[in-house]
């Protein structure tokens, strides 16, 4: 490899010597004035067409309606299609014209330029190093370690304000991730209209998307959760109710947490938190549409397939004195994606 140590590029002249640049062959437009004129007209026509399309864009802007039905024309609004087609054509005509111009009318003689090594010359390098050394010498940074070290220390400590100043990006998690708004006695209601649910409302095999009743204030009652707070609470408290044949339930504790074969599970996937709701009635499997983790709800929400690492948390159910489904407590474990201190 010694030959490689001089850093100069290789000369490749064997086994065949470099024959040199091929002779330039004239194009029709180089020798035939009529062909050149024709090319000139083509280019000018393209540029002219571009102006026409630019004007048409303006016409389309003012004449075509936009509005509420985006699928009225070619699956899109007439305005979008018209504007896009005119703008596209106007731009394309300039582009094609310019390239036609360069290919047909501009000189196509190849020219040669010489390369220089990326590195500076030895003299430049020596001069730069000498200047640098003079500067360093001048500063006395080598002779006065106290100055140097205290400066380095100061620069290091400047990192602290930079980090500390970002502290208010958000509150500390505390145990917020471990709890939801569910609590003893809270009714489990339909997620669409907040309707309360009786066990007799559900058939075997049915799945109902549900939420805590607190999200649906009754009558003139002030809403307890609104806007962001509502979304944050929903992101943890969304649940699904499924009714299965009690004989199919394989986990006794899980069955005991239900009412007449109706079980309530967290809707938030334990993988990365997508809401799960693809329900296979026959197999009692619940499939997450994001990454296909599959949970067996007849077996306490155990993972039977996919990347999730944990079973779906179950919400213990009961019925209140009016016969509606309620929770008997919050979830007994954090819902949703895993995190370090989750346990």
């Amino acid at each position: 490899m010694s030959a490689h140590d001089d850093h100069t590029p290789a000369v490749i002249e064997e086994p065949i010597a470099n024959p040199g640049l091929p002779e330039h062959l004239p194009r029709p437009t180089d020798v035939d004035e009529a062909a050149a004129k024709r090319a000139e007209r083509q280019v000018a026509t393209l540029f002219g067409l571009s102006s026409v399309f630019a004007v048409l864009f303006c016409v389309a802007y003012f004449t075509l309606n936009i509005g509420d039905d985006p699928t009225v024309f070619l699956g899109l609004g007439a305005s979008t299609v018209g504007l896009g087609a005119c703008l596209g054509a106007a731009l394309m005509c300039i582009g094609i014209g310019a390239i036609q111009w360069s290919r047909k009318l501009m000189s196509d003689h190849e020219i040669v330029e010489y390369r220089h090594p990326a590195a500076s010359s030895e003299e430049d390098r020596a001069e730069a190093v000498a200047s640098l050394m003079t500067g360093i010498e001048d500063s006395g940074i080598g002779r006065r370690p106290l100055v140097r070290n205290s400066l380095l220390g100061a620069m290091g400590f400047l990192g602290l304000p930079a980090i500390v100043a970002l502290r208010d990006l958000g509150p500390l998690p505390g145990d917020k991730l471990a709890h939801t708004v569910w609590k003893k006695g809270m009714q489990v209601v339909q997620d669409v209209d907040g309707a309360r649910i009786k066990p007799s409302d559900m058939e075997v095999g049915q799945l109902v998307n549900a939420e805590p009743a607190v999200f649906f204030p009754e009558g003139d009652q002030e809403a307890e959760y609104e806007g962001t707070a509502l979304l944050q609470a929903k992101a943890k408290a969304a649940v699904i109710l499924v009714r299965m044949n009690p004989d199919d339930l394989r986990n006794k504790r899980s069955a005991n947490w239900g009412v007449e074969g109706i079980l309530c599970f967290s809707k938030i996937c334990t993988h990365v938190g997508c809401p799960i709701s693809l329900w296979e009635q026959q197999t009692h499997h619940l499939l997450c549409p994001c990454h296909q983790s599959t949970f067996d709800l007849a077996d306490a929400g155990k993972v039977v397939f996919g990347p999730a690492g944990r079973h779906l948390p179950q919400l213990p159910l009961a019925v209140d004195e009016e016969g509606y489904l309620i929770a008997t407590s919050d979830f007994h474990e954090p819902v949703g994606p895993s995190y370090w201190e989750r346990g």
């Binding site: 590029p9 290789a10 000369v11 490749i12 470099n18 024959p19 040199g20 640049l21 091929p22 703008l87 596209g88 054509a89 106007a90 731009l91 394309m92 005509c93 300039i94 582009g95 094609i96 014209g97 310019a98 390239i99 111009w101 360069s102 290919r103 501009m106 000189s107 196509d108 190849e110 020219i111 040669v112 330029e113 010489y114 390369r115």
Partner: peptide
């Protein structure tokens, strides 16, 4: 032929590449 490690052979920036690359911008944009 004629191309080596020490040279670069082709067309000049002005006008050929200005027209080609500039024109190409409009083609991508269009």
């Amino acid at each position: 032929p004629g191309r080596t490690e020490e040279n670069v052979v082709g067309y000049p920036m002005m006008p050929v590449y200005a027209a080609k690359a500039g024109g190409f911008f409009f083609i991508v944009f269009g």
